[in-house]
Design a protein around this nucleic acid. Structure first.
Lengths: 156, 156
DNA sequence: TAAAAACCCTTGAGTCGCTACAAGGTCAAG
DNA sequence: CTTGACCTTGTAGCGACTCAAGGGTTTTTA
């Protein structure tokens, strides 16, 4: 199958597949006469695996580790378990942070109940004061915005 | 004051300040004879404001909007309120997603209670199956890892 | 059968919010 | 006069894509 079909089957998109190839997550496929990438079911399975992992917010490095274990059936899977435990730890930690954040934001929001002149807006005032969030978040955790796992664009 | 002192006072770091200047968040400061940036209390206040907002996980674009209102005291602050409401919405949404994620991860983790041969590891098996996370996360939300707001390096 | 549409190729650059480096200029103290 | 702390500009890197330009190939349609 060609790259577009693989993308459809795995719920991915074409550029992402080529990106995974560059990053060494997908093995280099055969090429057709016209220089098109030709994939088999093994590629599909592997890509699906990767997408599941990304759906669980794992990094490509973590996924690389997991793929290694998939390919070495006789190795001990203790590292897999640890990787997942660590990952769960990150998620739990991040949830806690976001809950604290929400509290702060709600408090801030409560300071300006209506629409008024910006100069008397309690929110802007609150953000100008010190002591709100001196030492903010710890390392290794991300924002609320940013690039998430996007499903490929659906036809409109 | 020079850039290093401003950085210390605002709990930021020097490169970040120059970055904000490039991005138009901080006004271009005066220069000394030796071409050093010279800042006043107004810059300090503004940088502190920005850092508070970043501590609340706002994007630089959102912050730009807020700064605009800070500078236009007679405008109506309804948009400020909306921006904050939207932002809170993102956070709440993200918390929900991460909680769902944690559940999935815990379930997956439960499939491999001990260390065994990778070929029989329930986690790897689980990740290979379809139907786990077909349509993953929606747009506009980030990962569990990634770059967070870092406090400037503390001397060791 | 030929043109049009759909698909594919490579390369390179852009996203966000910094961080880190390199190669040099400036300034105060010893 | 030298050391070293501080400053300058410019550039490159992170993660995980995403998109655009400028082609080539294959399939569909007229």
């Amino acid at each position: 199958m060609k790259i577009g079909e693989l993308a459809r089957l795995a719920g991915s998109n074409v550029e992402t597949i080529r990106y995974y190839e560059r990053k060494g997550l997908l093995p280099i496929p055969a090429r057709s006469e016209g220089n098109y990438r030709i994939y088999g079911p093994m590629h599909q399975e592997r890509l699906t695996f990767i997408r599941h992992c990304r759906g669980l917010d794992m990094t490509l490095d973590e996924i690389r580790t997991l793929l290694h274990f998939k390919e070495s059936p006789e190795e001990n899977c203790g590292e897999v378990n640890r990787l997942l435990d660590d990952h769960i730890g990150h998620v739990v930690h991040r949830i806690g942070e976001l809950q604290a954040l929400e509290k702060q934001l709600q408090e801030l929001r409560g300071r300006c109940p209506d629409e008024r002149r910006a100069s008397t807006c309690g929110i802007l005032e609150g953000l100008s004061q010190s002591g709100i969030n001196e030492k903010p978040m710890e390392n290794h955790i991300p924002g609320v915005h940013g690039t998430a796992l996007k499903s490929p664009k659906e036809p409109e």
